[in-house]
C-alpha cells in the first residue's frame, strides 16, 4: 500500500538569472515500510524531491499525496501541522536545538503535539535506549559527537511514531563506524516500528543498505530498483 504518491512533479528554481529545472515530471510511489534511497549526481534533484515528498516544498506542477492527503491543498499553517503529525526529519547536520538537552530535543516535537508528560517521559526513555545514548539524556548537543547527534536526530524523528521519515544525506558528516551504527539503527527502527525511511544520498554505504534505489538524473527518474536482501 503506497504512503506517498507523486504525480507529474515539476519544480523550477528562479533564484538565479538562469532558471534551474530541478524536477521534470517525476512520478513516484513509495510504499509503507520501505527503506529507500534516492540517488544520483549532485544537482540531479534528490533533495528537491525529498523536500517535496516531506512537505517542506511544493511542486510548481503536479500533485503530491501523503496517506491520501494532497499537500498542495493545504495552507502553510496546515502544512506545518501536517509535518508535525505525520513526518519525521533527519537532516545532513543533525540540526538539534543547541540550547535544549538530548532529552528535551527528543521531547520537543511531542510537546508541540501537547502529549502528556508521562507519555513523553516513557517515549524518551524508550528512544534513548533504542538509539543507545541512555546515559547522555542531560547532555547538550554540543557535548556529543557527530554520530551521537545523528542518533538523537533519529530519536527525535521517531518520537511521534511518524509513518514516514525523510533523511537528507544523514551520513554526510560521519565516519565509517558512526555511519554503520546509524544505518543499523535506522534499519532496526524500520524493522521494529515499520517506519518508512527515504534517504537522499550519494553515499555508497547507504545505497548498500537500501531495499529500493530510485535514481534521478536531470530531474527525471532514470532507474527504480528493488533489492532483495
Amino acid at each position: 500500500m503506497s504512503i506517498i504518491k507523486a504525480e507529474g512533479i515539476f519544480k523550477t528554481y528562479n533564484e538565479t538569472s538562469v532558471p534551474v529545472h530541478a524536477l521534470n515530471g517525476v512520478d513516484l510511489e513509495i510504499n509503507n515500510g520501505e527503506f529507500m534511497a534516492i540517488v544520483g549526481p549532485s544537482g540531479c534533484g534528490k533533495t528537491t524531491l525529498l523536500n517535496i515528498t516531506g512537505g517542506l516544498d511544493l511542486p510548481d506542477k503536479g500533485k503530491i499525496f501523503i496517506d491520501g492527503t494532497n499537500l498542495g491543498g493545504l495552507s502553510s499553517k496546515e502544512l506545518i501541522d501536517f509535518r508535525l503529525h505525520n513526518i519525521g526529519f533527519v537532516f545532513q547536520a543533525s540540526n538539534l536545538i543547541p540550547v535544549l538537552t538530548v532529552k528535551e530535543n527528543i521531547e520537543f516535537i511531542m510537546m508541540l503535539q501537547n502529549r502528556p508528560k508521562a507519555e513523553r517521559d516513557g517515549k524518551v526513555e524508550e528512544l534513548l535506549n533504542a538509539v543507545g545514548i541512555i546515559g547522555k539524556a542531560d547532555y547538550k548537543p554540543g557535548q556529543l559527537s557527530g554520530g551521537q547527534q545523528q542518533r538523537v536526530a533519529v530519536a527525535r524523528a521517531l518520537a511521534t511514531n511518524p509513518r514516514y521519515i525523510i533523511a537528507d544525506e544523514p551520513t554526510a558528516n560521519l565516519d565509517s563506524a558512526s555511519t554503520r551504527e546509524l544505518l543499523d539503527l535506522m534499519a532496526e527502527m524500520n524493522e521494529k516500528y515499520g517506519t518508512t525511511f527515504v534517504f537522499a544520498t550519494h553515499d555508497q554505504r547507504v545505497m548498500d543498505r537500501a531495499k529500493r534505489i530510485v535514481t534521478l538524473e536531470d530531474g527525471k527518474i532514470t532507474g527504480d530498483k528493488t533489492i532483495s536482501k
Partner: peptide
C-alpha cells in the same frame, strides 16, 4: 538555521 529546523519539524 535552528529556527528553520524547528519550523520544518512542526513548530508554527
Amino acid at each position: 538555521k535552528q529556527y528553520a529546523v524547528m519550523v520544518a519539524v512542526g513548530l508554527q
